[in-house]
Design a protein around this nucleic acid. Structure first.
Length: 478
DNA sequence: TTTTGAGTTGTTCGA
DNA sequence: GTCGAACAACTCAAA
């Protein structure tokens, strides 16, 4: 066995359990250099966003603690991996580098170049997906473009069992210099707008495991119906943990399958939940096979779509001042908690695209900066899905009515009241359409439209008609 | 090669 | 209030 140390390069896999690269490195019995590199230069357009930086700081803090408990050390470096890795290899005499794969186009190019240029052994592993994008193909060997057949095919494939966390981690051969996490400036200051994230989230592997256990115990059984309800956190809330790799889909799947083995009545909820993980994999499959997904219309006919340039409307949407309570509540939720309910994402995205006719890429950029779970594949695929420009797109006539959606999925208005205190005293009947409320009702609730809460910035019926006309322009018939 | 059934999450209108 | 139909045409994936 070589005494030359091995480097484990952590990227979007900030965990010790079910970490194939780490497990393989530990199995070599070499001394280990456990490394994270903050690269703010390689991805030019989609470098890590503001909210995600807070999570990254907390996640690295947790990973460092977990590693230390097992006898190892996490080294932090900032810069370009193509410079840092050779330097570290030279300084440490490392004989191997192990990592788990990423699927962003820039990451694929970076890793490919590193594999070619580094003179030592390099091994990459699947740590982020149930199935690699190239493993799920149609009968003719093409990548799937429609979710349902994709997921049906994926379910036919075997998945590996989750790997246990290493019992102990070998120390590095010598002292490896490390940046101080606090010097990276990942946490916001003056103002510390992330302080509202603290009570909502516990970044790190333990926090992820707790969220999963909570989901299985309390939520998964009713998930197929309750998942759509806007209030009360009916979903797993695992997405940021999954993005940063604090838990793997393999672990999640093994846990929910294990629960079904003891409680067969959970099967229905588990199947629905696993299909959501399937969407995550499907999105990665799309990004891998169509690397321009984040930046270009997947359907080229949308290149002719008559988007409007409306900075004021865009800003009203960003800040939750559209005058449609369910939209505004969701945008406030995003701002305050760094996340947004899945259905609320569809409602707000549909509103930006269809009601305001603003380019989906403007929304994609805002979500990228404000979401703790910002993920290039999910973000791009989902925005294009709502726009209708993407794979497996929604029918053109699917334009969410924010009032109907609010009344259906927030019937008692508790979601709106939580995020829009100005409307807290408005009765259920008017909570999703305050502009229709009689003046005395508004007075009694202490609401003056235009002062305490905005009037709608567009009329729904008119906006819907305008969107349908715009879509007709680019249809083959128009 | 051609055919066939199907395609995450909706809304509106009229009976 | 409830319910079914209409809302385009197209592409996908497998038979």
């Amino acid at each position: 066995m070589s005494d030359a140390p091995a480097i484990v390069w952590f990227r979007q896999d900030l965990r010790l359990a079910d970490n194939p690269a780490l497990a393989a490195a530990v199995a070599t019995k070499r001394p280990l250099i456990l490394l994270y590199i903050l690269d703010d230069e390689t991805p030019e357009r989609w470098r890590i966003g503001g909210a995600s930086r807070w999570w990254l700081h907390k996640g690295l803090e947790a990973l460092g603690r977990d590693i230390a408990k097992k006898g190892g050390v996490l080294a932090l470096r900032r810069g370009v991996p193509a410079e840092i890795l050779p330097e570290l290899i030279a300084a440490s005499g490392a004989g191997a580098v192990y990592w788990n794969r990423c699927y962003e186009p820039y990451a694929i190019a970076r890793d490919k170049a590193l594999k070619e240029s580094l003179a030592i052994e390099v091994k990459s592993f699947n740590g982020a997906l149930m199935h690699e994008p190239w493993e799920v193909k149609t009968k003719t060997g093409e990548p799937y473009k429609v979710f349902t057949p994709y997921w049906r095919a994926a379910l036919q494939l075997e998945t590996r069992a989750p790997l246990p966390a290493p019992r102990k981690l070998p120390a590095p051969p010598t002292t490896i210099s490390s940046d101080a996490l606090g010097d990276w400036g990942l946490l916001p200051t003056k103002p510390n707008w992330a302080k509202t994230f603290e009570p909502e989230w516990t970044p790190g592997e333990a926090g992820a495991a707790k969220a999963l256990a909570d989901f299985i115990e309390h939520k998964v059984q009713a998930y197929p119906e309750s998942r759509d309800m806007l209030a009360g956190h009916p979903t797993s809330r695992l997405s940021p943990h999954l993005h940063f790799g604090e838990i793997s889909p393999i672990q999640v799947r093994a846990a929910v399958d294990g629960a079904v083995a003891h409680q067969p009545n959970l099967q229905r909820g588990v199947d629905k939940f696993l299909s959501e993980l399937g969407w995550r994999e499907f999105s990665t499959n799309l990004l891998f096979n169509w690397p321009t997904l984040p930046d270009a219309n997947w359907r080229e006919q949308f290149n002719a779509f008559p988007w409007r340039d409306d900075e004021a409307a865009l800003e009203a949407w960003r800040r939750g001042r559209t005058g449609y309570p369910v939209v505004d509540a969701a945008m406030r939720e995003l701002w305050v908690t760094g996340t947004m309910h899945n259905r609320a994402r569809m409602i707000t995205a549909s509103f930006l695209i269809k009601h305001l006719l603003i380019d989906w890429r403007r929304g994609e950029e805002w979500f990228w900066d404000t979401l703790l779970d910002a993920d290039l594949a999910n973000n791009a695929a989902s925005w294009q899905w709502v726009a209708g420009s993407g794979a497996d797109a929604a029918p053109y006539f699917r334009i969410f009515n924010p009032v109907t959606q609010g009344e259906r999925y927030d019937a008692d208005g508790s979601y709106v009241r939580r995020w829009l205190p100005a409307l807290a005293k408005l009765q259920d009947e008017w909570i999703h359409r305050p502009w229709d409320a009689p003046p005395e009702v508004l007075r009694a609730a202490g609401v003056e439209l235009g002062r305490d809460y905005p009037r709608p910035i567009v009329d729904h019926a008119a906006a819907r008609a305008r969107a349908l006309a715009a879509l007709a322009e680019i249809s083959s018939g128009g």
